[in-house]
């Protein structure tokens, strides 16, 4: 199991296109990945589930992965978030 907490720096947070970019990336990894904000933890690979978290710019999310590729999965998703999920960070 591997997990990291990261701040969303992109303008839309986990909404709109960034939510899709995040969920598709999570779905393509060799690990079972969840994302949580506060008490709620959801399947990171489902864009609808990710939208239920209502994550905005500045929110901190925790990415948790299990499976053979857990460490790489978390590293990959954290890097994606740090890069702004396809949006220009502000």
């Amino acid at each position: 199991m591997s997990e990291r907490t990261v701040e969303l720096t992109n303008p839309s947070g986990l909404h709109a296109r960034p939510a899709k970019v995040f969920a598709e990336a999570a779905a393509g990894l060799d690990a079972t990945v969840t994302v949580s904000k506060g008490e709620r933890e959801v399947n990171a690979a489902s864009v609808l589930s990710v939208l239920t978290l209502d994550c905005h710019q500045g929110d901190r999310i925790t990415i948790r992965a299990e499976g053979d590729g857990a460490n790489e999965a978390v590293d990959h998703l954290v890097a994606l978030v740090d890069e702004g999920l396809g949006e220009e960070p502000t």
Partner: peptide, 12 residues
């Protein structure tokens, strides 16, 4: 940007 707290989440 902040006012959809709740509605979009509820819809999803």
């Amino acid at each position: 940007a902040d006012q959809h707290v709740g509605l979009l989440s509820s819809l999803a």
